[in-house]
Each structure stands twice: as structure tokens, then as C-alpha cells.
Amino acid sequence: MSAEPAEPAGPAGDAHGGGLRKVARVVLLDPEDRILLLHGHEPDDPADDWWFTPGGGLEGTETHEEAALRELAEETGITDVELGPVLWRRRCSFPFAGRRWDQDEWYYLARTSRTATGTLGLTELERRTVAGARWWTCRELARARETVYPTRLAGLLRTLLDEGPPARPVTLDTEIV
């Protein structure tokens, strides 16, 4: 499998199944413009792994912004952030944990001065499928041989760092795995 997880490492928050899942993700940058990515894998196959931005599904009447901040806190322990604009939007569909997930993802820019992370808010499935977190430079990301989602993240990050946030969210190519 080479799919992106919906929660930190899987779509654990969508118990009802079916339909298009609304997801808020965070492109979290530190003072050195490094991006935080989480390392996840398929529940029963740690070798089937990938890197991805923190984030997950909206709960109840939550806004995308509220979900982005909640998910970031749950998955990383980082709460002292400045949430910026929506950078990108993406639709994706992938198998994970025995089912197919169809998602509408919004990627928010956020900045933090804190680089220590913790995972106290993970669900049971997330605890089984999140292998850690790492801060990546743009150069490291561009050279990575590991699977990273969204697939063009290195180029998107380079454009963001060179040109700043887009005037309105950029719609990324749909990814279907």
C-alpha cells in the first residue's frame, strides 16, 4: 500500500464509514522553515510506511480551523501555533486498515517556535500505526526516497518558502491509490 493516512496514521476518527470525509491538515513550520511530518504505517505491516502532515477528520460541528488545531494538539502536543491561511486543497482516496477512505483535505499553514513533540492524544489505532515525527528541511524532503503525502510536498514547500502563501488555496491533483 502507498496510501496516506487520514488521522495521524489512519482514519480512526471516521467510525460511520462511507462518504467524503472532511479533513484539516497542518503544514507546520518551525523558525528554521523545517516542516513537521509524522511517520505512519499500515496497522499490520510496519514495512508499508509513509510520511504525512498532521491532521484528521472534522468532528461534529467543528470548523476546519478548529479541527486543524485540535488534531495538531492531539498528534504532536503542540498548541502554541499561529494558524495561517489554507494553502492547498486535495481530494484523495486510499485503502487503510481494511477499508477505503475518500477525503477532501484542507492544508493550513501554521508556525511554531516549539519543536518538541508528544503524542498523548492518539487513538488506539493511531498508537498502533504512528511510528514517530520528524522535522524536515526542504532539501531533505526533496531528496527523500520515502513515500510522502501529498506526493508533491517537496515542490509545494519550496514554492511556499520562496513565494509565500498563495492568494487563494491551490487545488492539488486528486490522488487515488
Rank of each mutant, 00 (worst) to 15 (best):
G17D: 14
S93K: 11
A3D: 10
L122I: 01
L83D: 11
L120G: 15
E4L: 08
I176T: 13
T174M: 11
T61Y: 06
E71L: 07
A12P: 00
W136N: 07
P5R: 08
L125S: 01
G55A: 02
L69P: 00
P54G: 07
L122D: 06
G17Q: 13
R21T: 11
G56Q: 11
P5C: 15
P5S: 14
A131Q: 11
P169W: 12
V27A: 15
E7G: 15
V148M: 04
C92K: 13
A12D: 13
R127S: 09
L125C: 03
T63A: 07
W88P: 03
L87A: 07
A144Q: 01
P31N: 04
R111V: 00
V170T: 11
A167Y: 01
E4N: 10
E32Q: 13
V26S: 03
F94W: 12
T147K: 07
W136A: 07
R111D: 01
D104A: 15
T123P: 07
H39M: 01
D80C: 07
E175M: 08
E126I: 00
C138K: 05
G84P: 00
A3Q: 06
W101I: 04
R114K: 06
A12H: 10
A9P: 00
T115K: 05
A15I: 02
A68S: 11
G118D: 10
T112C: 02
S113T: 14
D49H: 13
G121I: 02
P169M: 05
T117S: 03
D48V: 06
R89Y: 09
E42H: 09
T115H: 03
L172A: 08
P150V: 07
H16G: 06
E74V: 09
D173C: 05
R25L: 10
A97M: 04
V81Y: 02
A110Y: 09
L120M: 02
S113L: 04
L20I: 15
R134Q: 12
L36F: 08
S93E: 14
D33I: 01
T112D: 06
A9W: 10
A73H: 13
P165E: 04
E65K: 12
R127T: 08
P31T: 01
C92E: 12
T147C: 08
S93G: 14
S2F: 13
G84A: 06
L160I: 00
S113A: 11
A9C: 09
G40I: 00
H41Q: 02
W106T: 11
L153R: 01
R25Y: 11
A97D: 15
I78Y: 09
W51C: 01
T137A: 03
L141N: 05
H64L: 15
A6D: 12
D14C: 15
A3C: 14
T151I: 05
E126Y: 03
L38A: 08
W136R: 04
E65M: 07
G84I: 01
T53D: 05
T117V: 15
L109K: 05
L20R: 14
G40V: 00
Q103D: 12
G84E: 02
P85Q: 06
R168E: 10
T61Q: 14
T112M: 00
R168I: 00
R90A: 13
L153V: 02
A142F: 06
